[in-house]
Every structure is written in structure tokens, then in C-alpha cells.
């Protein structure tokens, strides 16, 4: 491995973020807006409802789950720590967990993209 590819690897080092959020129409905008307004690219997004087990804002007429999970694949960047703190402040974000790039959620999705 030469110095160049090491630098490249560092530049491309990525992180997987796992967020439990209230499931309603605006949540994705709140989360993704944190990144877009800083010109911080999100490489991958997956979101699915997961259940009712936690306290979220009840909204009437809603037939889907109250809680969703958002998986984000983002490049490591000096701004990431600040990003995480900002996401944790969002009212609809119930919890945030940080995983290394080795997390398989996006790897296993790859077959749908090739």
C-alpha cells in the first residue's frame, strides 16, 4: 500500500449511523437536512418502520408504526462529531448509535444495486 492509497482510504473511511426516530412525514427531512445544509454528503440511506415499543408522538389516523429506524452511511469527516451532536438534539430522534464501516447493513443491500 503506497502513501497515496492510504490517504485515499482515510478520506473514504466511513461510518454507519443507526437512528431510532418517530415515524412521521417530516423526520427524514429533519435528519437529512442536517447534512445537506452543511454540504455533507450522505452516501447511503435506509429507513423502515420497526414497531410501537417506545413513546412517540401519537398522530391520529396513522396506521403505520410509531417508530422507524434510519440507517445512514456517511464519510468520516472532521465535522462528524458535531453532526452527531446536532442529530441527537432533534426532537424526533430517540436514539443514535454509531457503527464502524464494517457494519453489514449496507453491504447486504448491495445486491439490489448491481
Amino acid at each position: 500500500m503506497n502513501a497515496n492509497s492510504k490517504t485515499e482510504n482515510r478520506a473514504l473511511a466511513s461510518t454507519v449511523l443507526e437512528l431510532d426516530v418517530n415515524n412521521h412525514a417530516g423526520v427524514m427531512s429533519h435528519v437529512v437536512g442536517m447534512f445537506s445544509r452543511r454540504a455533507y454528503n450522505v452516501e447511503g440511506i435506509v429507513c423502515m418502520p420497526v414497531g410501537y415499543e417506545k413513546n412517540g408522538l401519537k398522530s391520529s389516523g396513522e396506521t403505520s408504526s410509531e417508530i422507524s429506524r434510519i440507517w445512514l452511511l456517511v464519510n468520516e469527516d472532521a465535522r462528524l462529531e458535531q453532526m452527531i451532536k446536532q442529530i441527537e438534539k432533534l426532537e424526533d430522534v430517540l436514539s443514535l448509535r454509531r457503527h464502524g464501516a464494517e457494519h453489514e447493513v449496507f453491504e447486504r443491500l448491495e445486491e439490489f444495486f448491481h
Binding site: G26, R37, S60
Partner: peptide, 26 residues
Amino acid sequence: YGLTIPITKHNFLVGSAEELLEVIPH
């Protein structure tokens, strides 16, 4: 709603009169 996401602490688009009882105090 979309315009105010980046300039508020939080925002709501209210879907029913019942929700107001929760949203306004919140």
C-alpha cells in the same frame, strides 16, 4: 414546514384538531 426546518428548534404540521391538544403545549 419545509421552509422552517433549518431555522426552528422543532416544527409541526398539525393533522387534526385532537393533535392540537398535544402539539401546542409541546
